[in-house]
Design a binder for these strands. Structure first.
Length: 506
RNA sequence: GCCCUCGUAGUUCAAUGGAUAGAACGGAAGUUUCCUAAACUUUAAAUACAGGUUCGAUUCCUGUCGAAGGCACCA
C-alpha cells in the first residue's frame, strides 16, 4: 500500500545522484510495533551512491520525501531504517476511499482464463484429511485468483477406473454372493452408511482377504513372489478390469452403481466443506486419450519405440530419466493419461494457465509432464503450474488408506462440529438461540477451526496432525479470530449513538 | 545409485536478505462491580553443525549430520 512512495524515492535518486534505480527493488515495510512510524524504508542500498553513512542517508531521504509529499507528518531514522509517519488526514482519506469502494479487494479483470484442478479423488474410498488440505488449498487459490480478476474454472479429475476400483467391486460382489442376495440389495440405504464409506469398507475387505490368502499360500510353502502371482483374489480383480475394459454389461452396471454411491457421498462432503467444481473430468473418459499423443510423438521423433514395442521419452539431457509412455502390450501409463487429459482440458477451455493442486510426492511427475508437453510443442505447456503442497502426517507417519491409518474427512468434520458444540454449551452462550441458529453456530465454529488449522501452515511444507489432541479452539485458531470479530462488532453496536462517522470527522 | 524437499522454544507453526527471531499450546505467577474470561497481564524457553558471500544471513552458496519424498514398465 506504500508503493506510491517508491516512485518518489526513485525520483529523488535520479534528481540528486543521477542514478536510475528500479523502484520495485526499493524495500518498504510496515514499521515494527516497537518503533515510531507507519512504514519503514530500508536505506542501506542507497548508501552506495549517497556516499553518506546509513544514518545521514536516511535523514537526507526523509527531508526530501517531506518536501515532496504533503501526506508525511514526520520521519525518524534508526540505523539504516527510515521510519515515516503519515498525517491523520491521509489515513482518513485512505480509509474512506476503501470504505466507499464496493469491490474492495477485487482487482480489475485481467482477461485471463485460469483452470484450477483439485481434490481429484479415487472412487474406492472416502475422502481423508489429506484430501481436505488439498481441497481447501485448491478452493482458496481459485477464490484468490478470482479476486485478482481472473476467469477461473474449478475442476476435479476423478480417478474412477483401474484395478483399485475393481478391488472394492469384487469384494462387494463376493459379499452379495456369500449372503446369497441379489447385487444391489446391499446399499447405502440398507446399511445406513454414506456411499463412499460403504465402498471404502469393501476396499479394505478386499485387502484383508488378499493378505490372508497370501499368508496361507506362504504357510503352504509358496514363496512370496509366487504367492502374489498366484493369488486368486488378485487374478479375479485383474479379470474384472479386463472385463470392464471390454465393456462387459454386468461389470459396467456394478461399476456405475458403486461409483454413483461414492459420488453421492463426495457431494455431501464437498457441501459441508463449502466447495464446488465447475467441471469434473473422469479418468474413464480420458485414459485412452494419451494414445493419440503417443502416435504424434513418435511421428515427430520426440518419443522412441524400443524393440519390444514399448514407447519411451529420453529426458536425460534435461537432467531427468528415461520415462516410459506406453507399455509393450500397448496400454498407457499414468503420465500418458495426463498428457491426454491436459489436451482435453485445453480443447474445452483454451485457458491461459492450468494449475494442478497435487501433493509434493508428484513433483517429478509434473516436471516430466510439462517437459513432454513442451517437447510436443503444445501451446499450453508453459501455462501449467504444479501447486505442490506438503503431506499431512500423523505422529505414526504418513497416512495409508489400505492400512487404515487415515483420518477420515467426514469423521473429522463431525468431531470438530461436536467439539464446538461441547465448548459452546459449557460456556453457556446459547441463550435465546433457535435450534437452527445453534446448528449454524456449531458448524461455523467447528469448520472455521478446521479450515484455519489447515490453511495457516505454509502450503509447501508438510504438516503434522495429532489425532490424540483434537484441533484447538483456543489460541491461534479460527474460533479465536471469529471471537475477536464478534467482540469488535459488539463494540460497534454498543457505541452506535456516540459513533462519529469518518465522513463527519473530515 | 541418482534427483527433490525439509531441519527454528518442550510441542505445533511464523519471520519478500533487514531493527531485540515472533505467536499459540504446554510450564510458572497473576487479573472478573469495567466494551463477550473462547479474554487479558507477567515470566522461563529456539535458528542441527562447520565454513563462505554480504554493511547485514533463519533466509543465498558449499560441506557434514539428521528426517521425509521421488526415479529403475502402479496410478
Amino acid at each position: 500500500m506504500f508503493n506510491f512512495l517508491k516512485d518518489t524515492i526513485a525520483e529523488i535518486i535520479l534528481e540528486n545522484f543521477q542514478q536510475t534505480f528500479n523502484s520495485s527493488s526499493i524495500q518498504i515495510n510496515a514499521t515494527p510495533i516497537d518503533y515510531v512510524g507507519d512504514c519503514t524504508i530500508v536505506v542501506f542500498p542507497f548508501t552506495k551512491f549517497s556516499k553518506l553513512n546509513p544514518e545521514a542517508t536516511g535523514n537526507f531521504f526523509g527531508e526530501k520525501l517531506m518536501a515532496k509529499n504533503s501526506n508525511i507528518e514526520s520521519y525518524n531514522v534508526v540505523k539504516g531504517f527510515l521510519n515515516i509517519v503519515f498525517k491523520p488526514e491521509f489515513w482518513l482519506t485512505e480509509l474512506c476511499l476503501a470504505k466507499a469502494n464496493k469491490s474492495f479487494g477485487q482487482l480489475a479483470s485481467t482477461g485471463r482464463k485460469v483452470m484450477v484442478e483439485y481434490s481429484s479423488p479415487n472412487t474406492n474410498k472416502p475422502l481423508h484429511l489429506g484430501h481436505v488440505r488439498n481441497i481447501l488449498l485448491g478452493h482458496s487459490i481459485a477464490e484468490i485468483l478470482k479476486a485478482c480478476g481472473n476467469d477461473v474454472i474449478k475442476t476435479t479429475l476423478v480417478n474412477d477406473r483401474g484395478i483399485h476400483i475393481c478391488k472394492s467391486m469384487l469384494a462387494y460382489k463376493k459379499d452379495c454372493e456369500k449372503r446369497e442376495i441379489r447385487i444391489g440389495s446391499i446399499n447405502p440405504t440398507t446399511e445406513s452408511i454414506k456411499g463412499d464409506h460403504l465402498v471404502g469398507k469393501y476396499y479394505v475387505e478386499f485387502d484383508k482377504a488378499y493378505k490372508a490368502e497370501i499368508k496361507s499360500l506362504i504357510e503352504n510353502g509358496v514363496n512370496e513372489d509366487d504367492a502374489a502371482k498366484n493369488s486368486s483374489m488378485m487374478k479375479e480383480a485383474q479379470q474384472m478390469l479386463l472385463d470392464w475394459e471390454a465393456g462387459k454389461p454386468e461389470v459396467i452396471e456394478l461399476w456405475k452403481t458403486m461409483n454413483g454411491w461414492v459420488y453421492e457421498g463426495f457431494d455431501a462432503s464437498y457441501k459441508k466443506l463449502g466447495v464446488t467444481f465447475d467441471k469434473s473430468y473422469y479418468e474413464s473418459n480420458t485414459y485412452l486419450l494419451g494414445k493419440k499423443a503417443v502416435v504424434e510423438g513418435l511421428k515427430e521423433s520426440v518419443f522412441v519405440q524400443d524393440a519390444d514395442n514399448s514407447v519411451w521419452i529420453d529426458l536425460t539431457n534435461d537432467g531427468l530419466d528415461r520415462k516410459i509412455l506406453q507399455r509393450k502390450d500397448g496400454t498407457s501409463v499414468y503420465i500418458t493419461q495426463d498428457v491426454g487429459t491436459a489436451q482435453m482440458k485445453y480443447d474445452d477451455y483454451k485457458m491461459d494457465e492450468s494449475i494442478y493442486v497435487v501433493g509434493n510426492e508428484q513433483d517429478y511427475h509434473f516436471k516430466v509432464l510439462q517437459l513432454i508437453l513442451k517437447k510436443l510443442g503444445k501451446p499450453y505447456a508453459d501455462g501449467i503450474y504444479h501447486m505442490s503442497y506438503g503431506m499431512v502426517e500423523l505422529p505414526s507417519g504418513k497416512m495409508k488408506s489400505r492400512e487404515g491409518t487415515v483420518v477420515d474427512a467426514d469423521d473429522l468434520m463431525a468431531e470438530m462440529i461436536d467439539s464446538a458444540k461441547q465448548t459452546t454449551t459449557a460456556l453457556g452462550k446459547l441463550e435465546g438461540l433457535s435450534e437452527a441458529e445453534k446448528e449454524k453456530l456449531f458448524y461455523t465454529i467447528g469448520m472455521g477451526a478446521l479450515k484455519y488449522f489447515l490453511l495457516k501452515v505454509d502450503p509447501k511444507k508438510k504438516m503434522m496432525f495429532n489425532p490424540e489432541e483434537s484441533i484447538e479452539l483456543q489460541g491461534n485458531t479460527g474460533p479465536f479470530i471469529q471471537y475477536t470479530h464478534a467482540r469488535i462488532c459488539s463494540i460497534l453496536r454498543n457505541n452506535k449513538l456516540e459513533r462519529i462517522t469518518l465522513e463527519e470527522s473530515i
